[in-house]
């Protein structure tokens, strides 16, 4: 068993060098952007939830999107990934214009996302969840599906790759379990592994660490760094500043629907606009129903984790 070892530290150093000359200001131009977004606006009724002038994401970087509750992070994120239906905006991914593309075109172009509230397909087994995500499967065509001979070999290759990924995410022992039986943290892992089955060049993670126990958080962080080492770009939403500063190469801060700051992680705390935004917002009070639901869900998952950990201890 060769656990591929990644030189994750080298990746961080390389990115630090690449981003050294980028000014710490909203909308800053990057030397080699993979994602460029212009004039993104999303309104709900009279409320403007997102109004982002310009954002570039550096190829191969781990970029964090942070901000107080109700800052419009998830809405912006949904718009970028084809799930948001923005009122205005133009954005390109690696030269492909995605402005009017339907959601399923994004992974085909090389950008795949995960969800804050995990979308594990609970009545499918873990391995079926993984195999589903593989791109360009011959057997996905109705007529070819009728003749198993046409797709069986590819299916075996897909399964092999899925098994390797499951091993890397230390989920191989759950291979044949229904995804519905997994814990909240395991679902996050599965969703991340499943996203990698799409062979993406950019991975968008919506709060990957939310509701995950500390031990699992560490391994999730490692997996994210491994993605960078594999050459993929990562953009993720996060609340916890410790997490952000430990892995990200660049931080984008949103408040009230706008980007108010951009900088390397170590400078974020010194930015007055950021401090004001965080102090000004009532961090404890959820602003929208969706956020409240999300937080309740997180709390539930946390309780579930604790319960499981306790059971495991008692079992031993």
């Amino acid at each position: 068993m060769s656990d591929t070892t990644y030189d994750t530290a080298a990746g961080a150093a390389r990115l630090a060098a690449e981003l050294a000359d980028v000014p710490s200001e909203p909308g800053a131009a990057k030397p080699d952007p993979i994602l460029v977004s212009d004039r993104m606006v999303r309104r709900f009724g009279g409320l403007t939830a997102v109004e982002v002038d310009h954002l570039e994401v550096q190829r191969g970087s781990i970029t964090a999107l942070i901000g107080p509750n109700g800052a419009g992070k998830t809405t912006f994120f949904n718009c970028l990934t084809g799930f948001g239906d923005p009122d205005e905006g133009e954005w390109t991914f690696d030269g492909t214009r995605l402005t009017t593309a339907p959601a399923h075109k994004f992974p085909q172009a090389g950008m795949v996302r995960t969800f804050q509230l995990t979308k594990a397909l609970s009545k499918l087994t873990v391995i079926e969840n993984m195999k589903l995500a593989a791109p360009d499967q011959r057997g996905e065509n109705f007529f070819r599906a009728l003749v198993p001979g046409i797709w069986r070999r590819q299916e075996r290759e897909v399964e092999e790759r899925a098994d390797q990924l499951l091993e890397r995410f230390k989920m191989d022992h759950m291979r044949n379990e229904f995804a519905g039986t997994l814990s909240g943290g395991q679902r996050k892992l599965l969703e991340m592994a499943r996203a990698l089955m799409c062979e993406p060049r950019m991975i968008m993670l919506d709060e990957p660490m939310a509701g995950v126990n500390p031990a699992l958080t560490q391994s999730l962080l490692e997996h994210i760094k491994e993605m960078r080492a594999d050459g993929a770009t990562v953009l993720f939403i996060e609340h916890d500043m410790d997490v952000v500063s430990s892995i990200s190469d660049w931080v984008v801060v949103m408040a009230e629907g706008r980007i108010i700051a951009e900088s390397p992680p170590e400078e974020v705390g010194q930015n007055q606009a950021v401090v004001d935004a965080y102090l000004g917002a009532h961090h404890d009070a959820p602003l929208t129903i969706e956020e409240e639901e999300a937080e309740l869900e997180e709390a539930d998952e946390l309780l579930e984790e604790i319960e499981e950990a306790r059971e495991e201890e008692q079992g031993r």
Binding site: G82, A103, K123
Partner: peptide, 14 residues
Amino acid sequence: KAIREDEDAVRSLG
């Protein structure tokens, strides 16, 4: 079968 479970997940996987 995946669509029956969660259409958005299927869409997000291309």
